[in-house]
Computed example of a mutant assay.
Amino acid sequence: MNPRALRYFLAVVRAGSVRGAAEALHVAASAVSRQVAELEAHHGTALLERLPRGVTPTEAGRILAEHAERQAEEAAFLEDRLRRLRGAPQGTVRLRCGAGFLPDLLENGLAGFATAHPGVAYRVALGTTGEILRAVAEGETDLGLAYNPPAHAGVVSRRLAPQPLAALLPPGHALAEDGTPRPLRAFATLPAALPPEDHGVRRLLARVEADEGFRLSPRLETEAFELQRRFVRAGLGVAFLPGFAALEELRAGQLVAVPLADPLLRHATAHLLARAGRRLPDAVERLAGWLEGRLAALS
């Protein structure tokens, strides 16, 4: 099979459209369509199902995409081994994570690793839990950092650590005086800063709300954890985050974390994710080991 055709086809599957693949590859859409058509003619079967908006792989297309992904990974692994013969680790490591991991990742992870391994670069993207799992499973990213992700057949947890969800309040608040764990229901009347409904933290909260028969009082909805923390610091209400997502403010005494007593929230975990069965390039493997031992989220 034509390696270029495989590469173009894999880009179509990842992007969900020929036009999106062409933009990612910086080629004309007609060139992508031609390569896909040649692959379908070579195998004598349709590889893509054309939809009103974009495309999705057929069963044969999914099998071919998995083969193309393995080939791309093996080629990258070979190139990495050859680079290692030339000296120190090099290359670009791709990471995708939730926004709450960013301060921890930069300060406790990448800063020290960059000093120790100056030949390695990084490409960091944000995503929801579902987007992180998909990107890791489909090889779009090398490592993922996710909060309480569901099980996924194509993804393994390199490391996980308990990271209970806590209620963040300003110092001196009546509900934070003695540090006693409190049920989520205790905060139902306070104005709350919450992430969007499709966010992993919001879904955890929603499950407790449904089980216990009450509703929180959202005053601010935002994906930006920094904005949620500032909402609390301004005395506007409460936010619900794991401790590592507000480490700086907690250490400085600007916020107080009240443990939540609900079992579902108390047993939440942070995960470092990689694709199941993949042999990681040297730079990725080294960074994974570094993050496992240094991130507050994984300690």
Rank of each mutant, 00 (worst) to 15 (best):
V136Y: 06
P150L: 08
R286S: 13
L105P: 00
A283L: 04
R50K: 12
A186R: 10
R50E: 13
R94I: 11
G154P: 02
A161N: 08
E79F: 04
L260N: 09
A296N: 01
A24F: 06
R279P: 02
Q35N: 15
I63T: 14
V232G: 09
V232T: 02
A72C: 05
V136E: 01
A5D: 14
P196F: 01
E131A: 14
R86W: 07
S33P: 00
L39V: 11
R219C: 13
T56M: 09
A297C: 02
A151W: 04
L241K: 03
A99R: 11
A245I: 02
G16Y: 09
H152C: 07
R158T: 10
D80M: 10
P196S: 01
D142H: 15
P150R: 12
A234I: 01
A297M: 09
L194E: 04
A125M: 09
A121M: 06
A174G: 02
L95D: 00
A153D: 13
R19C: 00
A68V: 06
T92L: 13
T269W: 10
E107T: 08
H67M: 15
A29C: 03
R286F: 12
V208C: 01
G253T: 14
A167V: 01
L273N: 03
E249P: 00
E248M: 06
